[in-house]
Amino acid sequence: MDLFNSINARLSEWALRAASVCLAALGIVVIYGVVMRYAFNDAPPYVEQVALLLVISVAMFGAAAGVHDAGHIGLDSVVKLLPAKGQFWCLFVVELLTIAFAAIVLWGCEHMATSTRHDTIPTLGISEAWRYVPPMIAGVLIILFSVKHMLALFTKKAAA
């Protein structure tokens, strides 16, 4: 249990670090493109596509870390009106639904990656399937983090 929590915390930290590195790389590649075009009249054609791959990585890893830290915007005013038992089940169902969503993201993006694996990204020459890899990783992470939240719910209930 503690091991599972600490692994999750570490995974979330790594996801956030990966997102930060991608964000920094994103800034560098775009500014490099501007400088090359403006100063050297030699715009690197791949900038747009590299940037798009980086931004999807920032977004998906950031979103996964957001689930770990419960950073996504939601509405709790209705649930708060319920008695403790009702609140517990609502929170449980929320985690369950989050897992369902992440599982469909994983499955659907795997499907899209398979469907597009022979298509190439223009100016890069690599497969379109790469676009769906960051969301697939994020799907796995979100499932893990939600399981963690779920276990925490039960622990809290047992303690109470």
Binding site: L16, R17, A19, S20, C22, L23, A24, V55, V58, A59, M60, F61, G62, A63, A64, A65, G66, D69, G71, H72, I73
Partner: peptide, 20 residues
């Protein structure tokens, strides 16, 4: 700087997921 990067990445994730 690292704090800003991390915070910006997380906010980007939240907003872009909403956009998606």
């Amino acid at each position: 700087l690292i704090k800003s990067l991390k915070k910006a990445s997380k906010t980007t994730g939240v907003i872009l997921l909403l956009i998606g």
